[in-house]
Every structure is written in structure tokens, then in C-alpha cells.
Design a protein around this nucleic acid. Structure first.
Lengths: 239, 239
DNA sequence: GACGCCGATTTTGAATACAAAATTGCAGCC
DNA sequence: GGCTGCAATTTTGTATTCAAAATCGGCGTC
């Protein structure tokens, strides 16, 4: 799976100058970063100009993102960034828990020395970031994303990696939005170190459990934040 | 999730006369039925004529199927029906085992009386088919497909259903090809009855285990057939 | 006889053009 | 004041068109 094709949907060619792929990558990042917030309706003309292509390759990228669950299409109305209710976020995390537990189990057995080095390097990079920097949360999120890619990629199972990525992508905007508000990455970093340890040791049972817990804890933190914030935003009926 | 939108990728509208959706449905069935066998290169002009649309909506359908893993795109070369090595088939079934076990657990708790009736009806319909009929395997496969849709649909979890469907779809052509060769559906029918029983009883633990086993057994039967057949086809090196 | 090169043909990718549906804004009415 | 209906505008979906890349086939050469 090449670096420019994280979802592994293309064949073997490098696909230089293949517009749909490039637009897909850029639009995908814009959604993950919540540059286009959940619920945003995406005007085709506008986006085509943003990415400097015609509507044709743009629509191909949107179709792909729709199939992956990051966009929703209402025919003749347009595409919109998927907006998830708390219930749906829970659903995605439950599925992720099941799948990434499995991924952890497989990864502990299939991983190479190189995988171990890469994962460690990512942890070092994350912990080396300056929490006071303006880009802190975004940089951290990007590395954290790579951390998960590295982990499931170590399974050497294309389909598993794709499935896990698609699910992660749908909740990633929510995680980033809340991360920006809290700025607290320490909980995740502790869990990452535990995961890296079991990963290096090749302890499949432990790694599976840790991966599941990591997903569950992430869900818990996220949902707590969302509920707190929605309680604060809508003053409820007792004004 | 509407009957015309099994993958749940569209919004709420009925999408009348929306070509990409129609073409998607038809092409998808043609792949599931192995009308286009794994590895087949799909010529766009030819297919557009087959489905009576221009290449534009056809390509949209193909993009979607590519994202779902049923096609593969090699840019500037064309789309082809995905062709899986035995290893990859194993991978998909392992993932399915994990996911459908989870689905069984959830379904046993979320299912309605109507779901139970529908599942039972499907079993009755399957067992009522005439094994001597020319259409037997195809009709049975179609009902079997609905059986699984009903089961995971009973979880009321869109995302889970979509994920499970996408994985099933990639191996379905192989199952149908082998089913046509053997014509033996009895093993699956016995397992279906056990599943329906736990489903009706709402026994989450049993249903989860049965779903996992059903997937595993299907994989075992399929792979045994494939290996037998490939051994018979290629006479190996000892001529 | 096999291999490689070069032109003709096919096929895909992308832009443009057009048609149809949805949205917007405004006027008139209750 | 708010609602309804209609026209103008916008926006999407689809066909057509064109350009570029890949494939195919024949020819010559080794």
C-alpha cells in the first residue's frame, strides 16, 4: 500500500497526474481536519476551483468519499460532509473496537522490525512536539493518524487496513474538533506507549486488548466532551 | 435502509431516474453473479451500451464499486473485476468472522418481531426451492444474500451493515461460482436454521458464536473447493 | 523464429456544453 | 406579519467532445 494511496483502492501504477486521486487526497484531508465541518454542503463549482480541476474528476473523488462514508449524497441536491449523531459515533467506535482488536492481534504476529522502528519514531515525534505551538494539535493529530496507519498496516492485510481506515475517517473530524478545544493529548500518549511496548514484544493477546481499550477510551473521552459541550450550548429547557 | 440502496450510501430521497444508482445496482448484481468473472476487464463503452447510459454515470457506478472493493482501477488502463488470491479470500473471511460475530451479538438484542418473521420466511423460501431446477443455485444464492442482509439489518446499525455487505460482496462471486459446481446447499441450510433459532430466542451469545461459525464454515468449504479445483486444473509439476 | 520498433486504432481521462431539477427571491395575498 | 406561488437563478446530472495515453498489429531486424 503506497503512501499516496492509503485506502488501497487503486492498482499498482503510480498514477502521476491522475486528478481524481489527487483531489481525493486533498478533499479527504480537508474533511479530516474539519476544514469543511460536518454537515457542510459542498458546491461542486466552488470546490473544483479550489482544487483547480473541472467538476468531472472532483465528482469522482466525491463519489469515492461517499462510498467510504465521509460524504453523503442526496441526488440532485448535492454532496455534504457526513454529520453523525452521538448514537452513530458510538456505533462507529464499537465497530472500530472490534476490528482494531482483531488488527492488534494480527499485527503483533505479522509486524517487522521496520514496523517497530516506525511506530517508535512516531511516538517520539508526537512527544517531541511543543504543546504551546499553534500547530500542536494539528501536527499531533497527523502523527497520531500515521500511528494508526502504521499499526494496522503492520498486519499486511490490505482489506483490514482499508476497512479500519474508512471507519476511523468518519469520526476523525469529531476527534480533531474536540482535541482543538481541549488540547489534551496526554491520555492518548500513555496508551500509545503501552501499545508500542506490546507491539515490540509481539504479544498478540495484550496488543489486541490494548487496541480495543484505546479505541474505547478515545470514544469515552470524545463523547464526554461532546455531551458536555452540547449541554453547555443548548441551555436545555430550563433556560 | 431502503431496498434499493443496500449499501446505504445515499441520502433519504428516492432517487427516481438517478442513473448512477441504477447502474450501480445492475453492475453490482452482474459481478455478484459472476456474469463478469473475477479479473474481467470492463470496457466502458461496451458497458455503457449494456446499461443504456453514457459513460459518465457508468463511471460513477464503477468508482463506487471500486471504493467498495468489487472493482480495481488501474488509471489509464481501466477497471477490472477484483480477482482474489486464496490468501486474500482468507483475509476477507477472517474479517467477516469478526464483524458478523459482533453483528450477531447486536442483532439478537435489537431485532424486532418483524425481523424474525422475515428471516424465517427466507429460510422457508430457500428450503422450498427445487434443487433440480436450473435456476436453483442462483435463486438460492439470492435468498441467502437476503438472509444475511436481514440478519445484519436487524442490528439497526447502518455502518455495520454497510461494512459487512462490502466484505461479503467481494467474496460472493467465488461462493456462487463454487456453488454452481457443487450444487450443495444443505450444510448452509442447517446452519441457517440454528441461526434463526438463536435469533428468535434473542440469545446474543449463541447467535454471535453461530454467526462466526457460519462464516468460518463457509470459508472452509469454499477454500477446500478452490484448492481441489486448482489442484485438478494445474496438474502440478509431476505432469 | 523471436524480439523490438513504429504507426494506426482503441480506450480512457477530463473539459465543455447542455438539460433538468432545485433553490432563491420577490410579489401578491390572506 | 407570514405564507403561497411564480419567475429568475443556481446547481446538479448527463451527454458530447476532445486530448492523451495505452494497446494492437505489422514490419524489419537480428
Amino acid at each position: 500500500m503506497s503512501a499516496t494511496d492509503p485506502s488501497g483502492t487503486l492498482g499498482d501504477t503510480a498514477a502521476r497526474g491522475f486528478y481524481p486521486e489527487m483531489v481525493y487526497q486533498r478533499l479527504r484531508l480537508d474533511i479530516l481536519n474539519a476544514t469543511f465541518e460536518p454537515g457542510t454542503i459542498l458546491r461542486q463549482q466552488e470546490l473544483a476551483e479550489r482544487y483547480q480541476v473541472s467538476r468531472v474528476p472532483l465528482r469522482e473523488a466525491m463519489t469515492r468519499l461517499t462510498a467510504e462514508g465521509m460524504l453523503i449524497l442526496r441526488p440532485r441536491r448535492g454532496y455534504a460532509v457526513i454529520s453523525l449523531e452521538p448514537d452513530q459515533i458510538v456505533e462507529v467506535f464499537e465497530l472500530r473496537a472490534v476490528i482494531e482488536e482483531h488488527a492488534g492481534y494480527v499485527a503483533a504476529r505479522a509486524r517487522t522490525k521496520d514496523d517497530v522502528r516506525r511506530l517508535d519514531a512516531l511516538i517520539v515525534a508526537m512527544e517531541a512536539l511543543d504543546p504551546a505551538s499553534a500547530r500542536y494539535v494539528d501536527d499531533w493529530s497527523s502523527l497520531n493518524y500515521d500511528f494508526h496507519v502504521c499499526l494496522v498496516g503492520s498486519t499486511r492485510r490490505e482489506r483490514l487496513a482499508r476497512t479500519a481506515a474508512a471507519l476511523r475517517d468518519t469520526v476523525e473530524p469529531y476527534i480533531r474538533i474536540e482535541s482543538r478545544l481541549t488540547g489534551d493529548m496526554k491520555h492518548a500518549e500513555r496508551e500509545h506507549r503501552e501499545i508500542a511496548q506490546a507491539f515490540k514484544a509481539g504479544d498478540a493477546t495484550s496488543l489486541a486488548a490494548l487496541c480495543r481499550q484505546h479505541v474505547e477510551h478515545t470514544a469515552q473521552r470524545l463523547l464526554r466532551q461532546i455531551r458536555q459541550r452540547s449541554a453547555a450550548t443548548s441551555p436545555t429547557h430550563l433556560s
